[in-house]
């Protein structure tokens, strides 16, 4: 579950919103203003691109705090990797 210092195969984590599930509670905007800002109606606008490593912990917290489970953290390439051990 780490995802840093692994060379070129480093997984990229990205935040995505399920637009149907999102009800604009705004938890993610409160918890991760570095990457998520409100649109004029309170729905989240997510900064494009991968989540920087130093914000991964905060991103996970935002994902876990979403009352409607609309916020997701995806990783690509998908780790079909079998972790040794």
């Amino acid at each position: 579950m780490s995802g840093n210092g692994r060379g070129p195969e480093q997984p990229r984590h990205e935040l995505r919103v399920n637009p149907i599930a999102c009800q604009a509670h705004g938890m993610c905007i409160e918890l991760l203003p570095e990457l998520i800002t409100p649109d004029p109606w309170g729905y989240p606008l997510i900064a494009p691109g991968p989540v920087p490593d130093e914000l991964l912990g905060l991103a996970r917290r935002a994902v876990n705090s979403c009352p409607t489970l609309a916020l997701m953290l995806t990783r690509s390439p998908d780790p079909a990797e079998a972790p040794p051990g």
Binding site: P19, I20, C22, D39, P40, Y43
Partner: peptide
């Protein structure tokens, strides 16, 4: 009316 940005944004 399922997604907020559409429900609010298209009328706007």
């Amino acid at each position: 009316g399922q997604c907020g940005p559409c429900r609010s944004g298209l009328p706007a």
